[in-house]
């Protein structure tokens, strides 16, 4: 089996071959293959700029892999600011000994995911480090997007706005949890890992008045709603019954003692819209296979500014707090 060796990051012939045969071939575009020290870009107006590093174990999981994640993650951060993803950088830190075939699969998966938004990888870097220095492979991607919808902000929520979640929550966190060592659970549950730009672009095209938009990654839905409640100094009241959660995620949560709204997502976003636009937003989202379960989950009020309230279908309510500490399975 061919493996990645230290020489692949050494700057010499092996590295050159790796760059040409793998990266240039899969990420093919004029800016990248001009092979200059830096990519020269000509943005038309306001741009959004973001960066994220990706490390996940296992690197191939049900519904995606670290490559798909590295593209979708950064592209989604741009999309959440109403920016069309244009250019990405991609830096790899590879542990010596990683099967070459694994790296190939990851790169192909990245190329595949890029097609969904039309973004291009225009610069990159590769390091190979001694065994044990990183866990198989870490990827950093940065991205630049052209802002086509201004004013989307966590500070922009107002009373009576409606909160929508784009699909059922908690899939990525639950899927990864099941594949981790030590928790011997099996199911067909897939991560929600997905590029969201097509759906976001459709919302913008449909002229939905989006106040705030955020993908519910680490910290889950609970983190997004709490950040918004604090940033806009409003209260978000959530109807627990309206939260879309699939049976498998509910099952994992029941068994391990987790809450779906604390679990990470990688292709699920939350948006706050003007109440009148909520039906249009739902109708627009429903055209995308990864948003068919989109649902209105709550409204913005002034009941307890800075707080998120979860309301049960039997009339009780409680605060929905930020998830805290390491997620550990319950004892009994």
């Amino acid at each position: 089996m061919k493996q990645v060796q230290l020489s692949h990051g050494g700057g010499g012939e092996e590295m050159n071959r790796l760059i040409h045969d793998l990266f240039y071939k899969n990420f093919d575009n004029d800016i990248l293959s001009s092979a200059e020290d830096a990519a020269v870009l000509k943005p038309a107006g306001s741009v959004a700029f973001t960066t994220d590093s990706f490390t996940v174990s296992p690197i191939f999981f049900n519904g995606g892999d670290i490559g798909k994640l590295a593209i979708a993650g950064t592209v989604n951060d741009l999309a959440m600011m109403g920016a069309k993803p244009l250019w990405l950088s991609s830096a790899f830190m590879i542990e010596e000994g990683l099967p070459f075939e694994a790296l190939e699969r990851i790169v192909q998966s990245m190329a595949q995911e890029l097609k969904k938004s039309g973004a291009k990888i225009v610069c990159g870097d590769t390091k190979v480090v001694p065994k044990g220095s990183v866990d198989k492979i870490f990827i950093n991607t940065s991205g630049i997007g052209e802002v086509i919808q201004e004013g989307i902000s966590a500070h922009a929520l107002e009373i009576e706005d409606v909160i929508i979640v784009s699909r059922d929550i908690g899939r990525h966190g639950a899927a990864i949890m099941m594949e981790r060592e030590g928790i011997d659970l099996h199911s067909d549950l897939q991560s929600d890992c997905e590029t969201l730009w097509p759906a976001v672009e459709a919302l913008i095209d449909a002229k939905v008045r989006i106040k705030a938009m955020r993908d519910a990654t680490r910290g889950g839905l609970a983190a997004v709603l709490n950040e918004w409640a604090v940033a806009s100094n409003i209260c978000i009241e959530v109807e627990e019954e309206q939260l879309p959660v699939c049976e498998e995620v509910r099952g994992v949560c029941e068994m391990l003692g987790f809450e779906p709204y604390d679990l990470a997502n990688e292709g699920t976003f939350v948006l706050a819209v003007n109440a009148e636009d909520a039906p249009l937003a739902l109708e627009t989202l429903s055209r995308y296979p990864f948003c068919v379960d989109a649902a209105i989950i709550g409204t913005v009020t002034l009941k307890k500014p800075g707080k998120v309230i979860l309301k049960s279908p039997w009339g009780s309510s409680r605060f929905l707090e930020l998830p805290k500490g390491e997620l550990l399975p319950r004892i009994c």
Partner: peptide, 26 residues
Amino acid sequence: TPNTPLGSCMVSSEGACNAYYRFGGI
């Protein structure tokens, strides 16, 4: 708090302090 527990009742999800911290206060 659950992140910096002084006592064990704040640690476990079954502890009274943890349950009050997470779900109480309304």
